[in-house]
């Protein structure tokens, strides 16, 4: 950044300068800032339409009263690689559209009935973790192993071999997760219980990510299969939809609607 000069750095890049100083102990006015790859965004997500309503299938069937916007959602504006600062679109455009659609929905729906049997499974899930004898599997250990295998094997460059290793590891972690236990049995602000529950969801998402990456035998955007280096529009110009199955996710696919921008190779 040094070539930019003090004025530009301090006026236009205050946050990144601050990060370099605090987290790397580097002075960006004088020294180069170290750069390394990291997972900084989760592509894909809960499928929604342009009004941020969650859809359940390839026909765009809306799940009534359920909305998603932001990084958790997938409206599919990013293609296979979300580019820098474009997640603002999710927030500013689709957050706003979600709000408007919710207002419309709330204005026309009679009285949204809570799903009668929605509470019990969640309560049972939490109580199972909370009620387990201490000394079982550790949340932080499983989470660390999950982070390591996803970082090492499920990054941008992957192939069938490393993905298969990841698949086996995630499945192993999922079975160990069934024995996870915690120290905090309290009912006030129990962040340990929350983290334990979140770990279960992380394992679900990891399994979906690995399974769909393994199935997609082509390279596209940030999914770069070293054993299938070319983009294959004939077979793979489609979105992956993952459904919960008995032995892992069942994959289905949804057609891509292409309007102004055709997919093309990134050659710069």
């Amino acid at each position: 950044m040094r070539h930019l000069g003090r004025k530009v750095i301090e006026e236009k890049l205050p946050d990144i300068t601050d990060f370099a100083r605090i987290y790397q102990g580097v002075e960006p006015l004088k020294e180069p800032v170290p750069v390394q790859p990291t997972a900084h965004y989760a592509m894909g997500g809960i499928p929604t339409n342009v009004n941020s309503e969650v859809v359940r299938d390839d026909k765009g069937t809306v799940v009534p009263g359920l909305f998603a916007a932001g990084e958790c959602a997938c409206v599919s504006v990013h293609g296979a690689n979300r580019l820098g600062t474009n997640s603002l679109v999710d927030l500013l455009v689709f957050g706003r559209r979600a709000g408007r659609q919710m207002a419309r929905y709330a204005g026309q729906v009679e009285r949204p009935l809570p799903i009668a049997d929605a509470l019990e499974p969640v309560r049972a899930e939490l109580e199972a973790i909370r009620g387990r004898e201490p000394g079982g599997e550790s949340v932080s250990v499983i989470r660390k192993e999950l982070q390591d295998v996803m970082m090492d094997n499920v990054g941008v460059y992957r192939d069938a071999t490393v993905l298969t290793v990841a698949l086996n590891k995630v499945n192993e972690l999922r079975s160990r997760y069934g024995k996870v236990s915690i120290a905090d049995c309290g009912s006030v602000f129990n962040t340990e219980l929350l983290e334990a529950q979140e770990l279960g969801y992380l394992l679900d998402i990891a399994l979906v990510t690995v399974t769909s990456a393994l199935a997609r035998t082509e390279s596209r955007g940030a999914h770069s299969r070293e054993d299938y280096p070319e983009r294959d529009d004939k077979k793979w110009l489609k979105h992956t939809l993952a459904y919960q199955g008995k032995d892992g996710p069942n994959l289905r696919y949804k057609q891509v609607s292409i309007t102004r921008f055709e997919p093309k190779p990134r050659t710069y």
Binding site: F19, Y23, S138, A183, G186, E192
Partner: peptide, 28 residues
């Protein structure tokens, strides 16, 4: 170079899971 937040996360992970604190982005 660890931050105090790293220390709290370590204590929660390795010594006492019941230690409670808020954290989200981890970067100020």
């Amino acid at each position: 170079m660890d931050r105090v937040l790293d220390l709290l996360i370590k204590v929660k992970a390795d010594q006492d899971g019941s230690l409670s604190f808020r954290r989200s982005c981890g970067h100020g």
